[in-house]
Design a protein around this nucleic acid. Sequence first.
DNA 1: CAACGAACAGACCGGTCTGTCTATTCCGTG
DNA 2: CACGGAATAGACAGACCGGTCTGTTCGTTG
Lengths: 198, 198
Amino acid sequence: MTDSATAPRTRARPTEVHERILDAADRLFYADGASAVGIDRVIAEAGVAKASLYSHFASKDALVLAHLHRRADRAATRLAAALERLPEGAAEARVHVVFDDLWAWLAEDSFRGCPFINAAVEYPDPEHPVRQFVRQHRHDFVAMLGEQLRGGGSRFVDPQLPQALAMVYDASLVTAQTDDAPTAEAGGRYLLARLISA
Amino acid sequence: MTDSATAPRTRARPTEVHERILDAADRLFYADGASAVGIDRVIAEAGVAKASLYSHFASKDALVLAHLHRRADRAATRLAAALERLPEGAAEARVHVVFDDLWAWLAEDSFRGCPFINAAVEYPDPEHPVRQFVRQHRHDFVAMLGEQLRGGGSRFVDPQLPQALAMVYDASLVTAQTDDAPTAEAGGRYLLARLISA
DNA sequence: CAACGAACAGACCGGTCTGTCTATTCCGTG
DNA sequence: CACGGAATAGACAGACCGGTCTGTTCGTTG
């Protein structure tokens, strides 16, 4: 096949506009909250016409959902890359990779809390698609922690441990958002040490 | 002094309108989020004229702040009442009173997360008065936990323990809000058991 | 060269937001 | 009975919201 389908244009590649919109929405929704950011700000930041936005996304809600989907995908990809370098077993080391990644995130200037928890707060209706996505993502996260623990030598893992680890993760996120990152990391490490050994 | 200053009127006692507004705002802001609730809904729920609201509260932000203040006061009063029935020492029992109160709250139908965390999410600017109030309240909560632990016989308390307990509290609130109350209580109890003995 | 699709700018719609203002009613007090 | 204060209803201003629509530009392709 020729790459004419993806050949450069002076203006934009086929999916470039789509990406620019999602980039802008992702940044703004996370920084200021989805409901506080108007469509006009997104198109201004993306340098895109309003009609273009609504030809790529059905509604603002769809854009919010796409933003959350991207956050989940990116986090999963980054964690998978860090975890696959570890030896087969090493269950506890795998958990520490997850949390070391968290401590680094909390310290970033742009950190403004967990995008999923924030979205859950902004959408009070538990049946809203955003809430359903958040619930699914959190369930998947607990399952991922369970797999990391189970995959190693320790095949009999306390079935409550993955959920408890996820809650330490949550608490660290919330504390860093409302208080400060060092407090969150210290408290998180303290809790973590009482759940698994270093 | 006569009590003519607080004598009943047919329409309303001096502070009755103030209370009706705050009651309605407290309920609506917690249920749907402060930024999602318009002034018009508050005055309709309170059965009050808009001008009355703005004669009792300078702005919507002031009303949000009053709502958070009331939540903090009520929680402190209720906890103090439950704690003063305990014997002088009983440090660990005091912590369990705090968390038993939490488990009961999570199971209520009207539970919609922590009003302070929710407010922090809704106000991204860390310098906003709402965020300053939330930070102060959370600091006070950790200090209260420290006092409960220190007051008893165990005078040498791990200085990190109060913060860690507060984080378990946070994690239980967030998990109940985004997932469900039983999961949050089970995970919270699991974490709690690894911090203090029953 | 002609036609098409995609992106462009921006007016426009109906609705909602916070906050102000006017005009009116009502009650307790002097 | 007259006054003053507090509450009432509701119009209004000015901004912003999500979303639609019109008309134009421009690069690619037949």
